[in-house]
Write a protein that binds this DNA or RNA. Structure first.
Lengths: 135, 135
DNA sequence: GTGATAGTGGATATGTATATCCAGAATCAC
DNA sequence: GTGATTCTGGATATACATATCCACTATCAC
């Protein structure tokens, strides 16, 4: 029920950017210092977010990172899925690797499915604007 | 939203034992063959479950594993926590390492807390009898 | 164009979960 | 007690996530 380190870094970075909507882009190393994340590791995370269209990366002098859209228009699922892709799968309790054939087998399937649905709904309905952090 | 491999093995093993309430104990290697889990790895998982009181292990000839109690009386949280202990922590979205100070900071805290609560409730209210699997 | 700046990407180290191997201890059947 | 059986536990190997290092490319200021 926790996210991986990469995913948490991604959430914290976007949350910080949402809370600091300045004109110019924010340096990767500044972001790393603010969030106390290893700079070289965070840069990989930020690059991934840029590739998937969550961030806009500007190279060269005066460069840095910016949110690609207004924070209200970026769902958490977009931030999370590039990193949790393989872990947050279908969701059968006893056989996470194969699609769940709902019928029978596991009488707890329905309640477990409910937990999973609550999780997916959260990621789909919450935006970066909802988690902005001024820390 | 998935469990680790070890946790899934533990769930499947107890689910199988619940569905096959024979008189004698079940061999670790038989369990491994039925569930298609590497035998030497499963043995570590079963040993952990025995140490934490979920299983009863019998050594020597005619030995094997048995559920320590009736499956209705074993909550999933008992099966899961020896393996997810360090991952399933407090649950602040942006700072999983420290206890969440609920107040402010993250406006999505409440809905995320709801997801976490649903997860904990599931583990606390579902028993091994609810997930028994004859596969 | 030149030089400084900042993101990109490859190579590499470290840590943890997963998986395997094997010797030892406990137990039962005889 | 002897021998076969089964769990136990240490040592080791593999895979992947995490973290670091550094050369390269793109961009801006001048």
């Amino acid at each position: 029920m926790n996210f991986s380190a990469s995913t948490t870094h991604a959430l914290r970075a976007t949350a910080w950017l949402a809370a600091h909507p300045g004109e110019d882009a924010v340096l990767g190393r500044d972001l790393a210092r603010k969030l106390k994340i290893p700079p070289d590791y965070l840069s990989k995370v930020l690059a991934t977010l840029a590739r998937s269209g969550v961030l806009h990366a500007v190279r060269g002098a005066k460069g840095g990172y910016r949110l690609a859209r207004a924070p209200e228009r970026i769902k958490l699922v977009e931030v999370v899925s590039p990193f949790e892709g393989k872990r947050a799968r279908s969701g059968c309790l006893l056989h996470p690797d194969r699609p769940c054939r709902d019928s029978g087998a596991c009488s707890a399937h329905r309640s477990w499915g409910g937990v999973n649905q609550a999780y997916r709904d959260f990621l789909d309905r919450t935006t970066v604007a909802d988690i902005q952090d001024h820390a």
